[in-house]
């Protein structure tokens, strides 16, 4: 019958219309900003820098190695190295960034910087309400705007952050064990050397010239 297809379609639309009052699956609209969906754990938006401890400037994990700057496809990271060094999480002296800027208006949220960073220093944020009326400065974030604590990282990506922490702790333990082993080996080598030195050559005799005795 001519028109039966249209009627079938109409029935379908009506079912959806009525269904939207009773069926959760058909009522999918979320009234942003009054309502918000919870973010997925994996969701990503723009990068931020992680710091450990309470002092952001001191605890910044970034060592200004500039790998991310080189790898970022649209080249939106800008780093200047500082001349002073500070110890990193395993106690090695490392450089730190003097300037670390990310231009969010250029960043395409690709996460390549996170993947290439060997120091777990840069991670993806989930903050998305970033609109600003200032087209140039407003979206150019500096080191001070970018650093966020490890606790914050744990809050937004709990699983990933826990993995990262475990990895860092493992590395640290390894480094410490290595340092200890190194120290022991050094001590042993030194002791051996001393022992070796002690056998053929007699211990140096006290100097013949007596120290001047302080008199009262």
């Amino acid at each position: 019958m001519l028109g039966s297809g249209i009627i079938k379609g109409m029935v379908e639309t009506a079912r959806n219309f009525v269904g939207s009052y009773i069926d959760e699956n058909r009522l999918v609209t979320v009234e942003y900003p009054e309502e918000r969906l919870p973010l997925k754990e994996a969701s990503r938006n723009f990068p931020f820098l992680v710091y450990d401890g309470d002092d952001a400037a001191k605890g910044l994990r970034c060592v200004a190695c500039q790998i991310c700057e080189k790898e970022c496809p649209p080249q939106c990271i800008y780093i200047i190295k500082d001349t002073a060094k500070k110890p990193d999480y395993i106690g090695k002296m490392q450089l730190q960034p003097k300037v670390f800027d990310i231009d969010l208006s250029v960043c395409m949220s690709c996460q390549i910087c996170v993947e290439v960073c060997p120091f777990e220093a840069i991670k993806m944020d989930t903050e998305y309400e970033l609109s600003t009326s200032d087209r140039f400065e407003g979206l150019l974030l500096h080191k001070e705007d970018l650093w966020k604590s490890n606790q914050y990282y744990h809050k937004i990506h709990p699983t990933e952050a826990a993995e990262v922490d475990a990895r860092l702790a493992e590395e640290k333990a390894k480094a410490e064990a290595k340092a200890k082993a190194d120290a022991e080996a050094k001590a042993k080598a030194a002791a051996e050397a001393r022992a070796k030195a002690a056998v053929p050559v007699p211990a140096p005799t006290p100097s013949p010239t007596p120290q001047p005795v302080k008199t009262a």
């Binding site: 001519l2 028109g3 039966s4 297809g5 249209i6 079938k8 379609g9 029935v11 379908e12 639309t13």
Partner: peptide, 11 residues
């Protein structure tokens, strides 16, 4: 549902 809506629609 989609096919009901469209596939036989005369228009």
């Amino acid at each position: 549902e989609y096919e009901n809506l469209l596939t036989t629609n005369e228009i």
